[in-house]
Computed example of a mutant assay.
Amino acid sequence: MNVVLAARRSFRAELIKLWRPSTAVAMGLLAALSVLSTVLVVSLADPASPGGPRPGDGNGPGGFDVTTQQLAGATGIARGFTGGATFVGLLIFLVCAIAITLEYGQGTLRTLFLREPGRRGWFAGRVAVTLTLVALALLAALVLSVAVAVAVAGVRGIDTSAWWSADGARALASGYLNVLLAATFFAVAGTVLGLVLRSTALALSIGVAWMFPIEHIIQNSWSGASRVFPGLAFDAVSQGGVADASYVTALLVGAAYAVGAATLGTITLTRRDVTV
């Protein structure tokens, strides 16, 4: 009961701290990434016919494995939003890692725990606030993405009638849910890495270097990397599964990493001196 009470107090206290310019900047960047991804995906989609040349074969804009025919389908409404999920996850990871390391650097946690010794409750409340903010930011980004997708599709002459069907609504809902789950995993990973390392530079260097360039380099020579490494598994979840990792597999791996990270963060926070 004490943990629950401490979590509720922490949630309310952390909500107050969200009213900062930095929060608006982070949400703005997240929305900008989603909009940029949507513009690129829709505007650079290959106009090849289903039986014709495919994207990346030298006959159309490379880098986006999507055609205008695919965009005209019911799932096309969510392709722009999910296409930028990797970069959105990176941004969320960075923001969470920086936010928690600043708490140590500025001495906030030391002062806080003098008044509220329930560290597990504080951690639960902090994570709950973070995930609530992420969910709302992604919802706003989704709305902007759809609006931009409709505008750009109109310029390119892509039929969007299938977007407003029941299948389109399901595709949009599943796309949002998948990106939200991946973002949750990235947020937990960034928060816990910051708790363990307590250094902004170290947390960002290790986290970003491992989960992005290093994992992708290994992936080029080992197809099983998406089923083992956290960053690739999180990204596979956001895409609804990839060739090397099914959605269920990626979700189980991502959830295992998130639960393990949360457990490690709780142990680290409760057993280490916050001044160390």
Score class of each variant (00 low, 15 high):
Thr111Pro: 00
Thr130Lys: 07
Leu102Phe: 12
Leu30Arg: 08
Tyr104Cys: 09
Val42Leu: 00
Ala31Ile: 11
Met211Thr: 07
Gly194Tyr: 01
Ser223Lys: 14
Ala147Ile: 15
Ala250Arg: 03
Ala203Asn: 12
Leu264Asp: 03
Arg119Thr: 04
Thr38Asp: 05
Ser238Phe: 12
Asn59Ser: 15
Ala203Phe: 09
Ala32Val: 08
Leu177Met: 08
Pro55Ala: 03
Val42Pro: 00
Glu103Trp: 00
Val146Asn: 04
Leu44Arg: 14
Gly56Glu: 10
Thr200Glu: 01
Leu133Glu: 14
Val208Tyr: 09
Asp65His: 08
Val188Leu: 11
Val228Arg: 06
Ile98Lys: 02
Thr270Ile: 06
Met27Leu: 15
Thr275Gly: 01
Ala225Glu: 07
Ala78Asp: 08
Ile267Trp: 13
Ala153Thr: 02
Lys17Tyr: 00
Thr67Leu: 02
Val276Glu: 14
Arg20Tyr: 07
Leu264His: 04
Val39Glu: 02
Ala26Ser: 11
Gln106Asp: 10
Val146Lys: 01
Ala166Ile: 04
Ala255Met: 07
Phe64Asp: 10
Thr270Met: 05
Ser37Gln: 14
Ser221Met: 14
Thr75Ala: 13
Ala147Phe: 12
Val155His: 10
Val179Gly: 07
Gly241Ser: 06
Ile100Val: 15
Ala256Ser: 13
Leu139Phe: 10
Asp159Ile: 07
Arg170Val: 14
Gly175Gln: 01
Gly84Ile: 11
Leu33Glu: 04
Ser10Ile: 06
Ile92Ser: 03
Ala189Tyr: 01
Gly51Ala: 14
Ser161Gly: 02
Ala97Trp: 03
Leu181Cys: 13
Ser34Pro: 02
Leu71Ile: 09
Arg79Trp: 05
Leu139Tyr: 03
Ala262His: 04
Gly28Gln: 08
Val152Tyr: 05
Ser10Met: 08
Ala183Thr: 09
Gly76Ala: 12
Ala201Leu: 08
Thr263Asp: 01
Leu264Ile: 15
Arg115Cys: 03
Leu193Pro: 00
Arg120Thr: 14
